[in-house]
Design a protein around this nucleic acid. Structure first.
Ligand code: SF4
Ligand code: SF4
Lengths: 143, 143
DNA sequence: GAATAAAAAGAGTTTAAACTCTTTATTTGC
DNA sequence: GCAAATAAAGAGTTTAAACTCTTTTTATTC
């Protein structure tokens, strides 16, 4: 349903929201180790998040990633759009193109409930909410 | 969420349930053309369904695929197990291994609703039900 | 301003799903 | 029994996602 890249991006953004301040940046090294995500692969994903302004970064000694004014308020849907594009809308139960509610596949009605539910979640939840759940030990970023 | 193979298998099984009688078998050629599925790829999938006794086949002139006593009653979950294995249970929102409700990832609770809903559908619906929907033009097998 | 530390960028490799092509086995009808 | 039709089986190729490795750019500190 979602790419691994999306999962990585989501967890990374949440980690940065919790731990990445401008005074105390998080290096890629630290991030990748903490989240158990392949170092360089995560690097590419972080570039993308930075490029889209979801988080900030600086190079050089004591450089790293840190939260900016947008980070906490970012809806999960924004991150999904960055990592998976419009895949969610097209890449459906039967991976069918050229179809819609007026010409439904044999799983459409059942799947629509599921998909629209997740879409609702993605549009509503923000990185901030995830960070709060992790802080309150209601969810885990690793393992 | 589900493989394309699963979608192909589901649609093929439904088509056979509707059109495949022992007196009037459906050839792979006809099946692949009707459903717009790559010929030989579908061949492999059909082999698998036959091997598992979901549908029957005979070789030779006027051979082809046809429904047997199990076909109509087959729950979608059986077909999913054949095509995707236990992928559904492990290959989750964040594609995380080593996790469960007691150690949830940041999307677990939201995703569980979605996944359990689809699991319920898969366990409850049968090929017969899909066939009826297609016959009643409430859903389409192609396009 | 040289050395160093870090992100950014680029260019590969690996892997699994999806798809294609070829050969073999089996059944039927003559 | 022979030819033809058809599924079954096997062996490739393609594609995209996931992952790895190398080089370049930028910022800091001394
Ligand atoms: S008909 Fe609906 S569920 Fe089926 S592939 Fe299209 S959008 Fe997805
Ligand atoms: S915690 Fe739940 S939703 Fe997340 S990967 Fe595991 S089973 Fe899936």
């Amino acid at each position: 349903m979602f790419s691994k890249t999306f999962g990585y991006a989501l967890r990374a953004a949440t980690f940065i929201a919790i731990h990445g301040k401008e005074e105390k940046k998080v290096s890629l090294q630290e991030l990748a180790q903490s989240l158990e995500i392949p170092h360089h692969f995560l690097g590419k994903i972080m570039q993308d998040l930075v490029r889209h302004g979801i988080i900030d970064s600086t190079k050089g000694p004591n450089g790293g990633f840190f939260a900016n004014s947008r980070t906490a308020q970012t809806p999960l849907l924004d991150i999904l759009a960055i990592t998976d594009g419009s895949l969610v809308f097209t890449h459906c139960a039967l991976n069918n193109k050229r179809c819609n509610a007026a010409h439904p596949c044999i799983l459409h009605n059942d799947f629509a409930v599921c998909r629209d539910g997740m879409l609702q979640v993605m549009a509503t939840k923000t990185v901030e909410i995830l960070a709060a759940e992790v802080a309150g030990v209601k969810a885990y970023l690793v393992r």
